[in-house]
C-alpha cells in the first residue's frame, strides 16, 4: 500500500487547519492580492525593478561535476540563475493568528523546494534563493496563512507575538512597520528590517474574529479553541512523550 501522509492528529478545527496548510494537495484560499513590486519593497533586499544580484554564475555557464544527485534533483529557478540567498521572517500573534512558527516550517517543507527554514518560539524565518523567495513570499502573504493585523513581516526586532494586542487590534511592533489606516486597511510603512519605505504598501484589511477563529492553527483556551478539548491531539502528544521518555532508557525486548 502506498504511503499516505496524515499530516497530524486531532479532530478540532485547529487540527484541521494545520493539516490543510501542510497538505500540498490542498489549495490555500487566496484572501488578498499584493503586487510583486510590493513584495520586493517589504522584503527590502533589492530595489524594485533592479536585476537579481548573483552569488555564482548561472548553472548553465559553469562546469558541474559529474554527480548522480545533480542529475536527479532539478535546481529551482533561483539556484539555476545563481541568485543570492535571502530571507523573509514572520511573527505570529498568539491571539488566533492563522499560522505559527512550527506550522509555517512544516507547511513550507511540504509545499516549497530549496528552502532553509529556521523555527523559533516567536518568529519563523525562511531562507532561499531570491527569486524563489519572492514567489514563496507572495504565496505566504496572499493566502489564508497571513493576517495583516496579527502576522508581522519582521526581519529584526520581532518582539510582540505573546503580548496583548493594541486597542485597534494590531499586534505590538516596536518599530511600527505596519499601521492601521483610518480606512481600515493595514499598510506597511517600513520594510521588514525597519527602514522607511518611499511609499506605503497596502496589505489589506484585518480579518474579523470569526474568520480568525475558523482559520487559526493555534490552540488558545481564552480566545479560540482550547487544546484540552481536542482529546485525540492530547492523546497523541502523550503517546509521543511517553515513548520518547521510555526509549531514553533504551529498554531491551526480552
Amino acid at each position: 500500500m502506498a504511503y499516505k501522509p496524515q499530516y497530524g492528529p486531532g479532530t478540532s478545527i485547529v487540527a484541521e487547519n494545520r493539516r490543510k496548510q501542510m497538505n500540498p494537495g490542498q489549495k490555500l484560499e487566496k484572501v488578498r492580492s499584493v503586487t510583486d513590486e510590493d513584495i520586493v519593497l517589504i522584503l527590502g533586499h533589492r530595489a524594485p525593478g533592479s536585476a537579481y544580484p548573483s552569488a555564482h554564475p548561472p548553472l548553465a555557464e559553469q562546469q558541474e561535476p559529474d554527480c548522480p544527485m545533480r542529475k536527479i534533483v532539478k535546481p529551482t529557478e533561483g539556484a539555476q540563475a545563481g541568485d543570492r540567498v535571502r530571507y523573509i521572517q514572520f511573527a505570529d500573534s498568539m491571539f488566533n493568528a492563522p499560522s505559527q512558527p512550527y506550522q509555517r516550517t512544516y507547511t513550507e517543507m511540504y509545499r516549497f523546494r530549496g528552502i532553509d527554514p529556521g523555527t523559533l518560539s516567536g518568529r519563523q524565518i525562511v531562507e532561499c534563493r531570491e527569486r524563489d523567495l519572492e514567489k514563496y513570499s507572495k504565496e505566504l502573504i496572499e493566502t489564508e496563512m497571513f493576517d495583516p493585523a496579527l502576522v508581522g513581516i519582521r526581519g529584526a526586532t520581532v518582539h510582540g507575538h505573546s503580548l496583548r494586542l493594541a486597542e485597534d487590534g494590531m499586534m505590538f511592533d516596536m518599530l511600527q512597520r505596519n499601521v492601521l489606516g483610518e480606512d481600515g486597511i493595514v499598510k506597511y510603512v517600513k520594510n521588514q528590517i525597519g527602514e522607511p519605505l518611499d511609499r506605503a504598501v497596502a496589505v489589506g484589511k484585518p480579518m474579523d474574529q470569526k474568520w480568525l477563529k475558523a482559520h487559526t492553527t493555534i490552540y488558545h483556551s481564552l480566545v479560540g479553541t482550547a487544546y484540552r478539548d481536542d482529546t485525540e491531539y492530547v492523546e497523541y502528544v502523550q503517546r509521543i512523550h511517553s515513548l520518547r521518555t521510555k526509549y531514553g532508557f533504551m529498554p531491551k525486548e526480552e
Binding site: T157, M174, L175, Q176, G194
Partner: peptide, 22 residues
C-alpha cells in the same frame, strides 16, 4: 509596558531613527 525606542536597537537597520506614532 514594552518600550518604543527612538532608534532601531538591533538588526541591519540598527541606529537609524524609529518614527512611531505612539
Amino acid at each position: 509596558g514594552p518600550g518604543l525606542p527612538k532608534k532601531v536597537p538591533y538588526g541591519p537597520a540598527r541606529g537609524s531613527p524609529n518614527p512611531h506614532s505612539d
